[in-house]
């Protein structure tokens, strides 16, 4: 029997990963940086989160019976907060590295982004193995804290499950997307950021620090995307590990186009992507080929949206005009 509520709940859980990734990438792209390093950055976010969690677990007192850290002493608040901070730190550092290469060293943005992706995936694979085998039990325990919804959710039936049963990162993803959307459309900083991405020479002439805005937007955007990686491991996989975060990263980049560079649209887009992503699991007896075809749908839809957007020729829906172009003042 197809349970529509639990299906949607799963989809919304999953959508947080795409939403973090795409919100981060939108902020970055609005500054004119095409950061194709998002998959690697999400890996680094996951690695950072696991590393932070492992530090916290190893700081717990040793239990006498198992001679391992006593997991019953875990503080739910710290078990969630520390990985979030370390994920932000790791992913933000990747954003800083990208900006250093693309702004300060004037490297080509496409090459830099792809380098960041391969670098992030490689570093993550190298370091995650010892951590996950040693702290697997701790991660599973911490994941429970990550996935805990509001206590009153179960008393509200389907309504409660649909709106209040998610872990903190799902709500955080939506809040971040809404805030990003408001900053972009309503504030002076948002206006300046969009100007930098549209026409850096004009922004420069208006006294806006183009390089500074690009650095900050890319670092913050990367940090947000990194939380997507953390969500994947701690919420979606319940503290275990799968080497498919980068796939989530590419979907997030596609989602940016799908949402036409608008974080608020990205909230709906991410849910749609998540529905398409998990739908095969809910169709009984689906064959391998059909499953793979269905997994392809999000990318296919993105291509359609891209076609639609370019046919429509509405200027507001186009990518930032100087996306992918480096800006040097001397090059007049």
């Amino acid at each position: 029997m197809f349970d529509i509520v639990s299906f949607l709940v799963q989809a919304i859980r999953l959508s947080a990963i795409f939403l973090f990734g795409s919100t981060g990438e939108i902020l970055t792209e609005k500054s004119g940086h095409l950061n194709l390093g998002i998959p690697g950055i999400m890996c680094m976010g996951a690695l950072g989160g696991c590393y932070g969690e492992s530090l916290y677990i190893s700081s717990l007192p040793v239990s006498a019976s198992t001679s391992a850290p006593d997991l019953t002493l875990m503080n739910p608040f710290l078990a969630v907060l520390i990985p979030i901070l370390t994920a932000i730190l790791f992913a933000g550092a990747m954003g800083a590295l990208y900006s250093f290469l693309a702004v300060t060293l004037r490297a080509n943005q496409n090459v830099t982004g792809l380098t960041i992706t391969t670098f992030g995936i490689g570093v993550t694979k190298f370091f995650i193995a010892p951590i996950k085998s040693q702290y697997q039990a701790g991660f599973s325990q911490a994941s429970i804290f990550f996935r805990t919804g509001f206590p009153f959710a179960s008393s509200l039936g389907d309504f409660g499950s649909l709106f209040f049963s998610y872990g903190c990162l799902v709500y955080l993803a939506i809040i971040v997307a809404v805030v990003a959307s408001l900053i972009l459309s309503k504030t002076r900083v948002g206006l300046h950021l969009r100007a930098v991405g549209e026409n850096p020479a004009t922004a420069d002439a208006a006294g806006i620090n183009v390089g500074g805005y690009r650095y900050v937007a890319t670092i913050i955007g990367s940090a947000i995307a990194g939380l997507g990686g953390l969500t994947f491991v701690m919420d979606w996989l319940s503290g275990s590990w799968e080497y498919s975060i980068d796939g989530m990263g590419w979907l997030s980049v596609a989602l940016v186009i799908f949402a036409m560079w608008k974080p608020n649209l990205s909230i709906l887009g991410s849910i749609l992507f998540a529905i398409l992503y998990i739908l095969p699991n809910y169709i009984p007896g689906i064959g391998f080929a059909a499953r793979e075809l269905m997994n392809m749908v999000p990318y296919f839809v993105t291509v359609l949206v891209l076609l639609f957007v370019s046919f429509q020729k509405k200027r507001e829906n186009q990518p930032p005009a100087s996306l992918g172009l480096s800006y040097f003042r001397e090059a007049r």
Partner: peptide
């Protein structure tokens, strides 16, 4: 002209004004 095409007149005018 140094203007951001996608912005309104007023947005261009206020750009960078602190």
């Amino acid at each position: 002209f140094k203007l951001v095409d996608l912005f309104t007149a007023a947005e261009n005018i206020v750009l960078g004004v602190k």
